[in-house]
């Protein structure tokens, strides 16, 4: 069977797990293409109006896959929680419903299941057994084996991230993560950290290609998803208590950790216009930036991608970083 996976939202976190699971069961995984104008436009026109752009784009990816004749199912999981007592944004938790109501005609093709991540193997096993059943796999031994393969791949991807390979590299090397693991990471004179939800940080079409733009000017780019959570655990103290949403905690505390790191020259947050949850971690980072003096800039992504103002701001931010390190505005 061919299983379509939309290139949006939690794809940028759990793709290795999903890929490992489906391929181990002998299915093909088909990804929607990276976000482009067409996907953005169909997403915007099929999603409800007053929702964040990240969710709209996701609609575009789903639609793209639904339009492919040879795709048997499109995988749209309902990820409710990623940590004990931490939940995802209500929109993410409602994703299959939103998608269903947007694409009623294709309801049958959608493959969705409730998932609790990082809360033990039992919860995962339950979820993936259900996925299996829906695609006609009832043999529990096979499900267990496939899940094991998925988890192994996810763990390997995590190791790659810890070595500062970004998630886009993980995606393109999914069949050969071992060699990615061996690949050295280039050191550069400057390092910029990106804080935000993975689907905002890694969607280059939406955010003005920040990662590429930085790398092209010889900046090393690190992302909050590369950090081992233990490293930033203690920042909960600064926030008084943890936030309700797992990914917002990663962005907030990871961002603070980077602000305290000597080898990080500046932090850029990337978020989606209309996202209330991002506003919370952005504010926390504003306050922390004031305390540490570490340069911070917010990029808020909306439907007007690639506007000249964004490029100007990124360039000015890089100038600021260079001058802060004692390098000039010229001849560098």
């Amino acid at each position: 069977m061919k299983i379509g996976i939309p290139r949006g939202l939690y794809f940028y976190v759990y793709y290795p797990l999903w890929y490992g699971f489906f391929t181990s069961l002998g299915h093909d995984v088909i990804l929607s293409m990276p976000t482009n104008k067409e996907i953005l436009n169909t997403g915007v026109s099929s999603a409800v109006d007053d929702i964040c752009i990240s969710v709209k784009v996701y609609h575009g990816h789903v639609k793209h896959l639904l339009g492919k004749k040879d795709v048997d199912h499109v995988f749209v999981p309902r990820i409710v929680s990623e940590d004990k007592y931490k939940y995802t944004c209500p929109k993410l938790a409602a994703m299959p419903d939103l998608i269903k109501s947007a694409f009623r005609k294709n309801e049958k093709k959608l493959l969705s299941v409730v998932m609790y991540m990082n809360q033990g193997k039992k919860a995962l096993h339950e979820a993936f057994s259900e996925v299996g059943k829906k695609i006609g796999e009832n043999d529990d031994r096979k499900i267990k084996k496939a899940l094991k393969a998925g988890i192994e791949l996810q763990d390997k991807a995590t190791m790659c991230l810890r070595k500062e390979h970004n998630f886009l590299e993980v995606v393109s090397s999914i069949q050969n993560l071992d060699s990615l693991l061996e690949k050295p990471v280039k050191k550069e004179r400057y390092t910029v950290a990106l804080a935000g939800f993975p689907y905002d940080v890694y969607d280059g079409y939406m955010n003005g290609d920040v990662i590429k733009r930085l790398q092209d000017t010889n900046m090393r780019v690190v992302v909050t998803d590369m950090l081992e959570p233990k490293l930033y655990k203690h920042y909960t103290k600064y926030m008084i208590k943890d936030l309700f949403w797992h990914q917002a905690n990663v962005a907030a505390k990871g961002g603070m950790y980077y602000m305290d790191s000597k080898d990080i020259d500046g932090v850029i947050t990337i978020s989606s216009f209309n996202c209330g949850i991002s506003a919370v971690y952005e504010k926390l980072l504003d306050l922390y930036s004031k305390e540490t003096g570490k340069p911070l800039m917010h990029i808020v992504v909306d439907e007007q991608t690639g506007d000249a103002g964004l490029v100007t701001r990124i360039e000015a931010f890089l100038d600021l970083i260079r001058v802060k390190r004692g390098d000039g505005l010229v001849a560098s």
Partner: peptide
């Protein structure tokens, strides 16, 4: 058509904001 604010400390830009929309 646009406006900006630039924050300077010790002769170097430390922060800025821009309004283009």
């Amino acid at each position: 058509q646009d406006s900006k604010i630039i924050f300077i400390r010790n002769g170097a830009v430390v922060d800025f904001a821009m309004n283009t929309v």
